[in-house]
């Protein structure tokens, strides 16, 4: 029962830091800023003739396609052009405007903001253990009548709670801002994707949005576990933040360098960006599927947490 007060304590510590409030405020400002800018800068009547625009695009793409084929160009580029043409044709046929904006579309567009959330969560997770070591406060905490794993668990849960709460705040803010800017409708709005077999399909935007929300929870958990582990092992927040950020951002680079290695699909890097797997488009490594990636991430998370707890339990605290 008293364990909950450990959790309360950690929560209070997180929110006593000024930076925490910036972490929450910054994404919200961006969400508002983008919507306002979009409203002010774009002429809503500009795309009234979107069908003609798309037709023009198709023509241009077709021409580019011919040229590329003639020059024996990059296969990836050819595929992309073909896919674009197909999607645009489908859009015209089925009357799906890519320019129709609703709050759901806005949420889909703003999905990359999750990188920012990931970044902030890494900072908090990387700091929550190591800063107590570097400031020496850890010894004031560990001499209480609680086993060490309980104290560490309170920190883990507090960080996860913070990460999830922040993500939820961002989601709700996006929905609200998007709704005020573009209207709350569009629950049945669709978008076009090309499935693996090259087939063109229509999908509900809400489906994408909710899948992305769910997957972000998983990604955040992995990031927290990673940052948490390094923070505990090295007792240094900068190392923790550095490594976790590297995993998150440099992942694509590492994959490019190592893409011909078979084991690449079992690395953390390859599986860190789950949202590309929702539609399977622009996917770097074709072998990856959602269930596979989630399983790999789950295994990594378990192992990282096990290491963290074992090391923390045994460590001599000389802070």
């Amino acid at each position: 029962m008293k364990w909950l007060s450990l959790l309360t304590n950690e929560w209070i510590k997180i929110f006593s830091r000024l930076r925490t409030w910036f972490f929450i405020l910054i994404p919200i400002l961006i969400i508002i800023g983008v919507a306002v800018y979009d409203k002010v800068a774009t002429d809503e009547t500009a795309h009234e003739n979107w069908k003609q625009e798309l037709t023009a695009n198709i023509e241009a793409d077709k021409k580019a396609l011919e040229d590329t084929k003639k020059e024996d160009g990059d296969e990836f580029f050819i595929e992309m052009l073909e896919s674009n043409i197909k999607q645009n044709e489908y859009a015209i046929e089925n009357n799906i405007s890519p320019y129709e904006k609703t709050t759901w579309q806005y949420m889909k567009d703003m999905a990359p903001i999750s990188f920012l959330i990931g970044l902030f969560v890494i900072v908090v997770a990387g700091d929550i253990v190591s800063s107590e070591f570097s400031k020496g406060t850890i010894k004031m905490l560990l001499i209480r009548p609680y086993s060490r794993w309980k104290i560490l668990l309170s920190k883990l849960i507090a960080t996860l709670g913070f990460a999830f709460a922040m993500w939820l705040v961002v989601i709700v803010s996006t929905w609200l801002v998007g709704g005020l800017a573009y209207g709350f409708g569009g629950i049945d709005q669709t978008y076009i994707v090309q499935s693996e077999g090259g087939q063109i399909k229509e999908k509900l935007i809400v489906e994408y949005v909710f899948a992305n929300i769910g997957l972000e929870f998983i990604e955040l958990t992995v990031l927290v576990a990673l940052s948490f582990m390094i923070s505990t092992l090295f007792m240094s927040n900068s190392v923790a933040i550095g490594v976790a950020m590297f995993t998150m951002f440099a992942g694509d680079l590492v994959i490019m360098l190592l893409q011909d290695k078979e084991w690449i699909i079992y690395t953390l890097f390859a599986n860190m960006d789950l949202s590309v797997l929702i539609d399977g488009q622009n996917q770097f490594i074709q072998e990856l599927t959602l269930p596979f990636s989630i399983t790999v991430l789950a295994v990594y998370t378990m192992v990282m947490l096990a290491i963290t707890f074992t090391v923390f339990q045994k460590r001599d605290v000389k802070a």
């Binding site: 510590k13 006593s16 830091r17 000024l18 400031k135 020496g136 406060t137 010894k139 001499i143 802070a319």
Partner: peptide, 14 residues
């Protein structure tokens, strides 16, 4: 048990 081990380290920001 109540204790101080070396200097008491406190949360500066609180």
């Amino acid at each position: 048990v109540g204790a101080i081990v070396e200097n008491p380290q406190l949360y500066d920001y609180m």
